[in-house]
Design a protein around this nucleic acid. Structure first.
Lengths: 175, 175
DNA sequence: CCACGATGGTTGTCCTTACAACTTTCATGG
DNA sequence: CCATGAAAGTTGTAAGGACAACCATCGTGG
């Protein structure tokens, strides 16, 4: 962005590089660990589990596709495919939204509810083992703050803001 | 793991959940941002870029596949496929390792080197915009420490330990 | 009241990754 | 010095996600 074309934001200094390399490592390894455990124990991917979990907390266990996509950080096409699969497994059902006939609602079925209840404890153990229990209480808070800051940059539309802020005092049973 | 079957590691408390939900958000969104920029500006995925970058820093720009896999947090099959693609684009070349005839060395070509040099500045800008510049200096250090702690749990074989610790004083030109 | 852009969602295709099977070479014990 | 298991890679296939194209509905200005 600079006239001399190269040294506006030169590179990362050592400390920044340290942090970045580690973040990349986590980015690369953590999803695999989460998927593996949930696939093995509950036959769902982490993203599928997350979709089910979000629905399980929503009023009437129902959410419009667009809202569900925002809550799960997914694009609409991706979500659509995933919900199709979940629907074929009777974990979720779709039905047209009465107020807006363009829109579709996704609702968790009883089987889907059961799936979340069954999968949740094992998933929680994995999350603790690989992340939470590795950190001090202080670091957990720091991670939340860092996540806030980064998500504010990542989420173009600021869609999360409202969603994430509500975790400042909230009931249990969530991913 | 508990006899009564449910409440050994009950669930995450609110603070932990806050942190976890945000981490999941970053996990879901950041890779897409990195890939999009690098695809657009340099026609490589983030993982491909990372592979090239690691090679570019290695002695003689060469590394054995297994070593390269460890440095990039990848499985060998995945790396093998990726290197095949990079090789077909003349960014990397493979040749048998003299000392161990099972092994294969991957070496960065001149074209690969150029690719890294060209892509690096834009990539750095993206990393700064979406992560580093969103954080205070203190948070950058915290993130590094958190990454250390988590990676220690994620990496079963402790393979990274040696790799990551070296970023405590190191030359530039790296991802 | 209708034309047009925006919103909500689905579908199809391609690319990448995961997983498992397989080959070759090494190393070790008998 | 051979048999056996481990280590190093490659390859095939099947599944998931990105992206673009597409259809339907809404809402607003003329």
């Amino acid at each position: 962005m600079d006239e001399d074309g190269a040294v506006d934001a030169p590179w990362l200094d050592r400390k920044q590089l340290r942090a970045w390399v580690r973040l990349v490592g986590v980015l690369e390894l953590l999803p695999g660990v989460l998927d593996a455990q949930l696939r093995r124990d509950a036959d769902v991917t982490h993203f599928e589990y997350y979709v089910l979990a979000v629905l399980s907390e929503s009023p009437d266990r129902t959410l419009r596709m667009t809202e569900l996509a925002r809550h799960t950080n997914a694009t609409l096409p991706r979500l659509s495919h995933v919900v199709s699969r979940l629907e074929s497994r009777d974990l979720v059902e779709r039905f047209p939204c009465p107020e807006d006939r363009r829109a579709t609602n996704a609702r968790l079925t009883d089987a889907g509810w059961s799936k979340v209840q069954e999968a949740a404890p094992g998933h929680a153990v994995t999350v603790r083992e690989h992340v939470v229990d590795a950190l001090t209480d202080e670091q957990v808070d720091q991670l939340a703050a860092i996540g806030d800051a980064v998500l504010a940059r990542l989420d173009p539309t600021g869609a999360m803001a409202e969603i994430y802020t509500r975790y400042d005092g909230e009931p249990p049973a969530r991913d």
